[in-house]
Design a protein around this nucleic acid. Structure first.
Lengths: 164, 164
DNA sequence: CTATTTCGGATATATTATATCCGCAATTAT
DNA sequence: ATAATTGCGGATATAATATATCCGAAATAG
């Protein structure tokens, strides 16, 4: 019961794209360098975001990944589901029907209380994730990121994009 | 991002113990037979419940597992954490501090908005799980379990406990 | 005291996650 | 056109975790 490590990478990458001027396109090489992450595996995460329609890709020189929608229209839930999948965390195998005291399937009309309770909690979790979007995250980021880092990052991108 | 399969087994086993007369003690062999599950692995789940103080164990003849507390005092969250662990699902590795634009650790005063948002959603999930206890689950079970199965189970236990 | 029952830690196997590599297709700058 | 860049998808290797089993130690009934 845990998130994949790539989730953190993917969300931070989206957050970075949202912080830069709209339409900015960053290749996986640059993203990996910025966060000091393994490029090939980060690219796999971005690929998942692309398949989910969260980022758009541009191939070829000057290509890379860019947000497919305004940051306010990309929720945390969408990113989480893109990376970790949208399957329910609890999969009921209906063991209540098994064993010597089980009865015919038609007698079971709805999921058992255990499954319903666990699914209800999952729903609360998803609801909370759906309340937060990339714009919110970047507002928080602006308040909590050290000014020194913001300056450093601005300078770094200027040099990188100028050099290319 | 998913629950272990043993979670379903553990909760159903607790639910069964709560449904039987207080103080009832069932060995893993009987539990496994009742749900048609692999005995050795089910015992592992019960072991976790025991280590978490949810069930008490009695070794030797006539031994087995029994609830350590009244069913109203055992929450779904406690059982979930006993089986799947109580670690946070999202582990922040602070990649914001890495790479060429990171600054000294002392400049970061609190977790980033991404981690806080994900943890908040987890908190909502735990809160929901903590609202439900074993007594609730069994009330639900009484309403949704086919009467045919209840009768069958009663008979099965009578025979089993008489034969022993 | 002894035989039996049952739990619990150690161990093995299977599955999944993590990480990498390479050829291909698409795009762009020259 | 051509060469260079970049993402995509498949194939593969390794690490971590979940799943499953076994056997010894502990406890009890008789």
């Amino acid at each position: 019961m845990k998130h994949s490590e790539g989730l953190e990478w993917a969300i931070h990458s989206c957050s970075l794209l949202a912080a830069l001027p709209p339409g900015t396109c960053l290749p996986s090489k640059l993203l990996a360098e910025f966060f000091d992450l393994p490029e090939a595996y980060l690219a796999k995460q971005m690929q998942k975001l692309s398949q989910a329609g969260i980022v758009e890709t541009r191939r070829g020189p000057r290509g890379g990944y860019g947000l497919a929608r305004p940051s306010a229209d990309i929720t945390l839930l969408q990113m989480v589901e893109a990376i970790d999948g949208d399957a329910q965390h609890f999969r009921c195998t209906e063991i209540r029907r098994c064993g010597p005291t089980g009865v015919a399937n038609r007698h079971y009309t709805r999921p058992c209380g255990i499954a319903r309770s666990l699914w209800k909690a999952e729903a609360a979790w998803r609801e909370e994730l759906n309340k937060v979007n990339l714009a919110d995250i970047n507002r928080m980021g602006q308040a909590e990121t050290p000014p020194e880092q913001i300056a450093k990052a601005l300078k770094w991108f200027q040099e990188k994009l100028a050099g290319a």
